[in-house]
Simulated assay, not measured.
Amino acid sequence: MSSKHHKIRVGISIGDFNGIGPEIILKSLKDKSITDFFTPIIFGSGKLFTYQKNIFKLQTNFNYINSAKEAQGGKINMVNLTKENSNVEFGVPTEESTKMAIDSLEKATQALLDNEIDVIVTAPINKDEMMKYGFAHAGHTGYFEEKAGKKAIMFMVTNNLKVAVSTHHIPVAEIAQNISKEKLKKQITQLSKTLKEDFCVEKPKIAVLGLNPHAGDGGVIGKEEIEIIEPAIKELFNNGTLAFGPYPADSFFQPEKYKAFDAVLAMYHDQGLAPFKTIAYEEGVNYSAGLPFIRTSPDHGVAYDIAGKNQADERSFSEAIFTAIHIFKNREEYHDLMSNRLRPKATHVNNGIDEDLPMENN
């Protein structure tokens, strides 16, 4: 459904309710005018959220529905997954909180696939606990890749800094063997496409970091840069993709360096996320780039240590909501533009009349 004809429907999965998920959701929606901008649809529990909103002294009201199809504009909609009371134990993952996290995610995702919501924003989960109860992925990214049948790129974004990672949640010992020339070419190409379609960057410039200290130091500290990373960058650049590097990671994240590029591709999780979260923790958003649908989340975890203490900062979650909305609109506008550009122009039949001359009256 085009956003030109309705407010964008934002589906929200609640994460582990013994963490800070419900708190940051409630705080992000506390302004009564929030529904002027989009239609929130939470996949959770009315009793659970009523209990938590009282703890945090918030006045949020919900429109209880059985499915996302029943959502109403101008209201905060709650798809009621259970009518039972929830046993909240802040700071401790439990079987109940984990199973509801899985149920919330699955129901919200199905609504996304069924076009009952336009985008999905996911609150933090406990990956280890979810896998104990049958969740087959070490995080959201792999789950959404399976649903889309397509590889995604973990893309951490703010207005001024965008960092993707080539390898996600794998042991450090396995990073080098999971990097290849062809994989990097596909990822950089997808990043360039994402920047154009989802972030309105006309000619994206992408910086690629090296794997080894000092980007291998000419092969002295590893040869991945020479044998894999440099050839991938050179081939793409020669074919018109503005990719540059590889750059030493230890000195790259200085403002005068990273701000010269539209995005950065790091080789592994901590290489990219450690500087990103240092620079942009409060406003950072995790975006699963390259998928046919739009999924964002805050750039932090369940934060059991502060759960229930009214200390959680909702800014990253709020940014995740509005980033998803902006991407949805940008992608629509891009596709409309390309559709109009590719549409053939009407041709005139040559009837011997010069149409630039006025017709004579008979």
Score class of each variant (00 low, 15 high):
E333P: 03
D36N: 15
K47M: 06
L273V: 10
G290M: 11
D336L: 05
N126E: 11
H348D: 13
V157I: 09
G134C: 10
G352D: 05
F293M: 09
I55E: 09
A123C: 12
H348W: 06
G139N: 09
H5Y: 05
V302N: 05
L357P: 04
G222V: 06
H326Q: 15
A136C: 09
N286D: 09
A266S: 15
I65P: 03
N362F: 14
Q110P: 01
G74W: 01
T296W: 10
A108R: 03
A303E: 14
V163L: 04
K69P: 00
G210R: 14
A266K: 00
L161W: 06
V119D: 07
L191D: 10
G46S: 01
F90V: 03
V119N: 08
Y64G: 00
L236I: 03
A176E: 14
P255G: 03
S297L: 09
I170S: 04
L58S: 10
E333G: 06
A249P: 10
T60G: 08
G352I: 04
L191P: 07
I55F: 03
L265I: 05
F237N: 14
A320W: 06
S67E: 06
P213C: 11
I233P: 03
E235P: 02
L81M: 00
T82E: 05
L291H: 13
L48I: 06
I153Y: 03
Q52A: 02
K83E: 15
I125V: 15
K345I: 11
H168C: 13
S192V: 07
N330L: 04
L357D: 07
R331H: 02
L195N: 12
I170P: 03
I12C: 05
L357W: 06
